[in-house]
Design a protein around this nucleic acid. Structure first.
Lengths: 206, 206
DNA sequence: AATATTGGAGAGTTGCACTATCCAAGCGAG
DNA sequence: CTCGCTTGGATAGTGCAACTCTCCAATATT
């Protein structure tokens, strides 16, 4: 298919497709002459992935680029791609305080979680704890541990459902599920808050 | 205190404080003449809240404004503020497909969750389900329901810990916890993925 | 042969979140 | 009292990200 059909099939304007090509988010089509190139299904899939990461995952294009590069890199293992995807998803953060870093380290030790010392997630969690304290409502240690146990339960249900029969499929599933399940979880939590809040109101009224 | 001290105490540059004043994110100080005004602790708190919402919650200033307006509105109930805060946090989304809307409605009916028909969360969840399908990895119905049950458990633990003795405190807690706990949950999930992935690797190697 | 379309390159546009520059009014030291 | 510094407020400018527009020569299509 030509670029105009690729644009129609993916819902991305032609000018934007050209921009993504320039930015290296989308591989070039197969040239059939100096002014023509054909694109395939993989280009449609890639465009849909990009739009999903941007629109729903809220990623910036520089982050999307890092993710698709990891996806395309045949030498990286599934575990590597998970790390790269997570690093790409984490914006640059200011240094957290030593106290919150220590809290994070202590939590992971107590739970016996194997998390790399270099993991961006350690910094991200420490910063998030700082932010709550700065906002005047620090998170209690027992609440943090409850959250951690709950999410371990989730992750244990999620990881085995990855289809590892093909690297290509496994990598795409890992990225999609890491990024696109997040808004689902957050929305379900907000709905649950609405529900519990509504329920307690009606109970109080009785 | 004057503006320069407010700036120093909150870590926000003077020029930015002026900008927030113009944008209505920060209430004006008490004028002590034509070219002087004094600010109080509530201005420091407000600035810290704004920075936390922007830096950690990832909100845009227009969204922050809607949140602080709801916080300042004395007539709105706690449940109202929850709704406004959630609406402010949800960016404008394209219409979801009828299928995913129906899935959301069916889920909420099956779980007997009381969620307003107008809630932005219904649209947000439907859109997120569409995004997964568009990306080629639709979410299974049983997985969605598992997520919902898990998050209901979380919410039931969270809501009763809100300090409802003062409206002011309750509202700030609600907003802070809605927004700032989200990155904590996402980071813990990613860490749990890292842990589970690492654990299954080492088990395979045995 | 005439017309339309395409891929590519570069410049231009939009929106957001600041940031810098002015300026008149006031306060404080000498 | 005067001189210089600081302050709050208004206005304009900056930097970045993500497009979007315009142009062009090479090709298809009719």
């Amino acid at each position: 298919m030509w670029m105009s059909e690729l644009s129609a099939r993916s819902g991305v304007p032609v000018a934007t497709v050209k921009y993504y090509l320039r930015e290296g988010l989308l591989p070039a089509g197969q040239a059939t002459g100096a002014t023509r190139a054909v694109y395939g299904e993989e280009h449609v899939r890639r465009l849909r992935l990009i739009r999903a990461l941007v629109d729903v995952g809220g990623l910036r294009l520089a982050e999307v680029r890092r993710v698709v590069e990891a996806v395309d890199d045949e030498t990286s293992s599934l575990h590597d791609v998970l790390g790269v995807a997570q690093a790409a998803l984490t914006p640059d953060l200011p240094e957290p305080t030593a106290e919150s870093r220590a809290r994070v380290d202590a939590l992971l030790r107590r739970l016996r979680w194997k998390v790399s010392d270099q993991s961006v997630n350690r910094v991200a969690l420490a910063r998030a704890l700082d932010a709550m304290a700065d906002a005047g409502d620090p998170l209690r240690a027992d609440a943090l541990e409850d959250y951690a146990r709950t999410l371990l339960g989730l992750a244990e249900a999620e990881v085995p459902t990855i289809d590892t029969s093909s690297r290509e499929v496994a990598v795409r599933q890992t990225v999609v599920r890491t990024v696109l399940v997040e808004p689902i979880l957050l929305t379900l939590r907000r709905m649950a808050h609405e529900h519990v809040s509504q329920r307690s109101l009606s109970r109080r009224r009785r």
